[in-house]
Design a binder for these strands. Sequence first.
DNA 1: CCACAATATTTACGCGTGTAAAAGGGAGGA
DNA 2: TCCTCCCTTTTACACGCGTAAATATTGTGG
Lengths: 337, 337
Amino acid sequence: MEELSVAIGVSRPTLSRFFQDPTLVKANTVERIERGLTQVEYVPNFFATRLNRKSTGMIGVIIPYLNDLFFTKLLQSVEEAAMRAGLTVITQCSHSDPAIEARAAETFMSMNVDGALVAPLGDHSDQAVQLRLKSRLPFVLMDSRPTTMPNVDFVGTNHIQSTGLMTEYLCRVGEPPAFLAMPRVNFNALEREAAYIAQMEKLGFEPEVLGTESVSDSAHFEEHGEAILDAEFAHGRLTDRSILCVNDRVAIGAIRAAARHGLTPGRGAKGGLRIAGHDDYPLCPYLNPALTTVAQNTDAIGKKAVSRLLQMIRGEVSGDTPEITLFDGELKLRESA
Amino acid sequence: MEELSVAIGVSRPTLSRFFQDPTLVKANTVERIERGLTQVEYVPNFFATRLNRKSTGMIGVIIPYLNDLFFTKLLQSVEEAAMRAGLTVITQCSHSDPAIEARAAETFMSMNVDGALVAPLGDHSDQAVQLRLKSRLPFVLMDSRPTTMPNVDFVGTNHIQSTGLMTEYLCRVGEPPAFLAMPRVNFNALEREAAYIAQMEKLGFEPEVLGTESVSDSAHFEEHGEAILDAEFAHGRLTDRSILCVNDRVAIGAIRAAARHGLTPGRGAKGGLRIAGHDDYPLCPYLNPALTTVAQNTDAIGKKAVSRLLQMIRGEVSGDTPEITLFDGELKLRESA
DNA sequence: CCACAATATTTACGCGTGTAAAAGGGAGGA
DNA sequence: TCCTCCCTTTTACACGCGTAAATATTGTGG
């Protein structure tokens, strides 16, 4: 930058100001600088520019999984909103490992990011690290909220509403549903299960939760759903029931199990097999049968999380009262229920 | 760091060395420092540490899409390999926009990353930017290789082999396949199409490519596959043929179209409908019917790309002879073909 | 106990830029 | 014409740390 400035015939600080905002420099000088820039290819050093700046213009985002289209959708929404606000997004995936998540948080702190957006590992995030992150910089939780961190800004889905909605629908058009859960609990899964139970009781039905014990090596959602229902169907159970799965990936496994037993879940006469999911995974419309589910408004969640973070960064918030934003789920009626 | 060092009673450079590698400091001193660190919470500044270092210990990765499990699988493999090598990964998604991709490349250059791993936008990457990136730092292309950039290190799949394998299989067990392509060409798609045609001719069959014209608003792979086959099936065409789809996401749409027309693709007597894909998308085993496909060895691709980049970073390569590594595809026989 | 080597620490400087304060320059009014 | 005011540019210093060279310390053998 030094050399470039002498070559152009201005002082280095003037060049510096030009790169930050050309309007800070006289039009005449701007023109000279731009002419000089066409001669040499110059890229300002990223680290040097952020070293002595009050704001780095970056936000950190942590997501728990990469191989899950729900989180990639959320991430896309976040990146778009951040880009619109002129922020650089640094994404880190914790790969379902609390240690990696913690390291990502450390990285963000050492980078002086302006704020952090975190979708935590459901059940076993290192909360000490997150609290330290929160105490140091604007911090918004997305998707899943540990019950032990009530005083944190959060953006997610209203699972009471979304699961209640689906439960009510299933009760209305068919047999009262059973709930297919996951053993590796996360807070969302627990909320959905609780919401299911509450809604069932409110409607006067007996709740029935299955899949809470781990079968075989069901590290993956789909495998788990398939394994549980395969066992049930093999004993002739649940073949004429409604089954509400804790999420779409479990439902995908459930549908697969049904197919293997010659069952075709679907909207039909009362007393038929129905399978429903939760989240509106992008591939749901292409399944056989197309999966009936509740859509999470990932787009709204991402946008809101970024805008809330921006408020905090700009100091436009009172500070002591965290904001909890829950978006409603939307019923997606397709073929499977 | 200054304050901390006086508080502990060592000079700042000693502290600096401690953070880089504690073995560079005497055991006695290490202990004193660690004792001091428990008192204060101190995180070294990310930017300052990289500003005057020869190596930043970071590599940049660009992927074209986030909402595609193929790329997230690849990214996961890359991240794992990089982590094992002690590298920090900076991921940027180009969101199928050449301008964003170009900006990501600029960011990497300004960050002085040690190297860059790029999965380009198939057909319309800004090659000038990529060439500039390549001329500035170790650079390895992944997944898709522009025909106009022959002299670049590349790691990907041998589509001649993989597509040839599947084509041969389909010819052997059923009707010679038609090829369901995509209008928004990328280089891999073109290679696969060419490989299909070559293999068909070698086996003495007439190649037949469809789906090269865009129907409706088929921005998405699945939609496209469904739309094309929906139209064909509606006219009673292709209902007893084998159909090789350019990738699994198109195949997912194809299977959906078959279901809508009451057709069940599968391995059966000669003369039945068969649908096959390419890539081994993670959800393939859970489709109805489970999708027969060719697996790309994403794990090997990611690992190899990182190790090759490391070689280049360490200067262990001759430099003038780029290495092209192609991994074979593996047939995944399931139900649909 | 001393000389010498080997290791540990410190001194001194630099990395590439941002920013506040000081200096410069040009337009408008008296 | 001169002076003031405002905008632009420059001067001077800072950001937080890495690193080579210089110095201090420790360990070893005689």
